[in-house]
């Protein structure tokens, strides 16, 4: 993964020098281990700040919304799918974009790493292909990357970008035989009371900071329903029903649009698995409409269109 850093810098420099783009959006190396910074460079002499490693889990499409200039952007599988979704939803035009595709082998879950070192402070991480070495004040441990992938990356079947102008490496082999919805099936098998308990516990730590909403490239409404006061759809306190309403409706707004990029979970300061909501919708979209978001520019999403053969068993 690290090998992409130089290539990204070279490409960005070229694009900016040739004035193919006005700005280039990528990641910069963070000031603490396992954290990277979204970065926009418009000066070809400053491209050395661009960086790529196994912790680029934040979705950069957030920074494309309603831009009017020409932008270069790095995109792995899920990011490229969100670019497609952005184009379909008229948030940016295809000809404004120069997409630098990156075949991805998954991002590392920083929480899993913290768990593995028993929450001790990590001072440095060295990433060497299939393994990585974690160093702290009084420990040094080597881990296999494969076992520490973000949970969405572990079941990802679209690692290669689906849309790009240029590719920075050979396409990687897509994973096969993964069962992405095991956790959803487990919940589906519960009776209503158990489900209620599951979701009540799931969100019990939520502090309503809205990091999940704001990290999601799909959430670009000028005014979010939680911020409206006429009518006030949902209360603003830490009341559990209001909090569940927020999570439920946020997820529902992502129906048929979510690419399971995992940005929401990655950014949550409280470690809440809010993908449990969106994954159910993804599963339903897959089963009822054979739909996965962001794979093509040529088809409208299922909630956008009416087809006579749409699933309608629930209408009595």
């Amino acid at each position: 993964m690290l090998r992409y850093t130089e290539k990204i810098q070279e490409t960005a420099k070229r694009l900016l020098q040739e004035k193919r783009v006005d700005a280039f959006i990528g990641y910069g190396k963070g000031s603490v281990p396992m954290m990277n910074q979204p970065l926009m460079v418009s000066d070809p002499d400053r491209v050395d700040r661009l960086y790529w490693d196994n912790f680029c889990g934040l979705n950069l499409c957030n920074y494309l919304t309603k831009r009017t200039d020409k932008v270069g952007i790095v995109a792995n599988g899920c990011n490229s799918r969100n670019i497609v979704t952005h184009i379909i939803e008229n948030q940016i035009k295809r000809d404004q974009l120069y997409i630098v595709g990156i075949p991805c082998e998954g991002m590392i879950d920083h929480r899993a790493v913290m768990r593995a070192v028993k929450q001790k402070e990590i001072l440095d991480i060295q990433q060497n292909g299939k393994t990585f070495v974690v160093k702290g004040a009084d420990f040094e441990e080597t881990f296999e990357k494969e076992k520490f992938l973000q949970s969405n990356c572990a079941v990802c079947i679209h690692r290669n970008p689906v849309i790009y102008d240029e590719l920075l490496g050979d396409l990687v082999e897509e994973q096969t035989g993964v069962s992405p919805y095991q956790d959803v099936e487990k919940v589906e098998a519960m009776d209503p009371e158990k489900k209620q308990g599951f979701f009540t516990r799931l969100i019990s730590r939520c502090i309503r900071c809205y990091a999940c909403r704001n990290a999601c490239p799909l959430c670009y409404c000028p005014t979010c329903f939680v911020d409206e006061s006429r009518p006030q759809w949902v209360g603003k306190s830490s009341d559990p029903t209001d909090t569940l309403t927020f999570h439920f409706l946020r997820a529902y707004h992502c129906a048929g649009r979510c690419t399971d990029c995992g940005a929401c979970e990655r950014v949550c300061p409280m470690g809440i698995s809010m993908r449990q909501f969106t994954k159910k919708l993804n599963k339903d979209c897959q089963e009822l409409f054979s739909w996965e978001a962001g794979l093509t520019l040529d088809q409208r999403p299922p909630l956008d269109v009416y087809r006579p053969d749409d699933y309608n068993d629930f209408i009595k």
Binding site: P38, M40, C209, A211, R213, N214, A215, V267, P269
Partner: peptide, 8 residues
């Protein structure tokens, strides 16, 4: 630039 405007 990168700020998500969340409340973390």
């Amino acid at each position: 630039f990168g700020c998500l405007n969340c409340g973390t």
